[in-house]
């Protein structure tokens, strides 16, 4: 939804940015964050659809629930909540288990 720039306790750890692609669109991420964090920061919270066509986002953010599966650099079923974002990475929404993008 948005980045936190000012916090009473925490300091931002990195200001360096990397560029990645979501469905072909170039987006900015902060170095070291996960793909899920980068997507949310860019206002994207629908990560895909279930087999039956229901929208799907992240739920646990620690790699346990598999709610966040996406296609990363062509590979389906990647848990983006524990995958650090990399320069030039290509991220796509995943439809069901099949891995076919929208």
């Amino acid at each position: 939804m948005s980045r936190i720039f000012e916090h009473p306790i925490l300091m931002r750890r990195s200001a360096r940015t990397v560029r990645f692609y979501f469905e072909g669109k170039e987006l900015e991420a902060v170095e070291g964050e996960t793909v899920a964090a980068a997507l949310i920061a860019n206002g994207i919270d629908v990560f895909g659809e279930t087999e039956r066509g229901k929208p799907r986002g992240f739920f646990c953010a620690i790699g346990k629930c598999s709610s966040c599966l996406m296609i990363v650099d062509g590979e389906p079923n990647v848990r983006v909540c524990i995958t650090p974002v990399k320069e030039g990475m290509k991220v796509q929404r995943q439809f069901g288990r099949s891995g076919v993008p929208w």
Binding site: M1, I4, I40, A61
Partner: peptide, 15 residues
Amino acid sequence: YGAGAVQTLMNQFMV
């Protein structure tokens, strides 16, 4: 979202 998940995003990644 799970409470821990929200925490991870906001406190670890500041999103």
